[in-house]
Amino acid sequence: MTPTDLLELARGPALWASLAVLVLGSLWRVAAIWRLGAAPDLSEPRSTRLLAGAMRGIFGRMIPRKEIGRSGRLGALNGYLYHVGLAVIVFGYLPHIGFIERLAGLAWPPLPGPVVYFAVGLTFVALFIALMERLADPVRRLLSGFDDYFSWFVVILPCATGMIAINVSYPAGAAPPPLDPLPLAIHLLSAELLFVWLPFGKLAHAFLVLASRGVTGAALERKGAAL
């Protein structure tokens, strides 16, 4: 198999297969949880504004309470860094927007290249800090298992392969040359590995967080309790 063949595979069957696993696996995970059902709460509610409570739960938890977790603040800040960094890379980089446009027909103006490259660097550093914290901090080390480390790996891998794929030198002012098919194929396959893993591991918090925060927000609002 030539590099071009591999790129064709990554752009074609592998991509569609990984997207199918991503979508179907995620739907399956949510549906399987949903079908567990919930018993009605028979206590008299203090508040019936449950949707507002769910929304406050979803958005309010983006900011840690200032009274709690002084020593956890570095970890929380680091979490912001790689989440925002990943968002900038995925949704702000021109080739990625083109990729999304080919898939979904949606496009938007890209961020300037240097901003994205800065975000990549920041994300790299933040992800390595996250790994160091997980290995060094007794609490995180105790909580961590295969899912935590493998999820970290499948997130940083596309970042690394992406940087390698675009690492092409060309004269200033000249148009960038076409990307080398082999690194690009590897980059695509590494992203596809992330797609395949996402529904099964902790990366699914990308969508489960909304449900978790929402149900707790609604339940606490019902009691008039602190969110």
């Binding site: 995970r29 949880i33 949903w34 079908r35 567990l36 059902g37 919930a38 018993a39 840690p64 709690i68 977790g69 002084r70 020593s71 956890g72 970890g75 929380a76 979490g79 997980r134 901090d137 609490v139 995180r140 909580l143 961590s144 298992g145 935590d148 902790k202 699914a204 918090h205 489960l208 967080v209 449900a211 978790s212 925060r213 149900v215 707790t216 339940a219």
Partner: peptide, 21 residues
């Protein structure tokens, strides 16, 4: 473990911030 509890258990990212509380 019903629906609400399951959504919560599945969402844990093992960040350990609860220890600080």
């Amino acid at each position: 473990v019903g629906r609400d509890a399951a959504f919560q258990l599945e969402a844990c990212v093992h960040c350990g911030l609860c220890a600080e509380a």
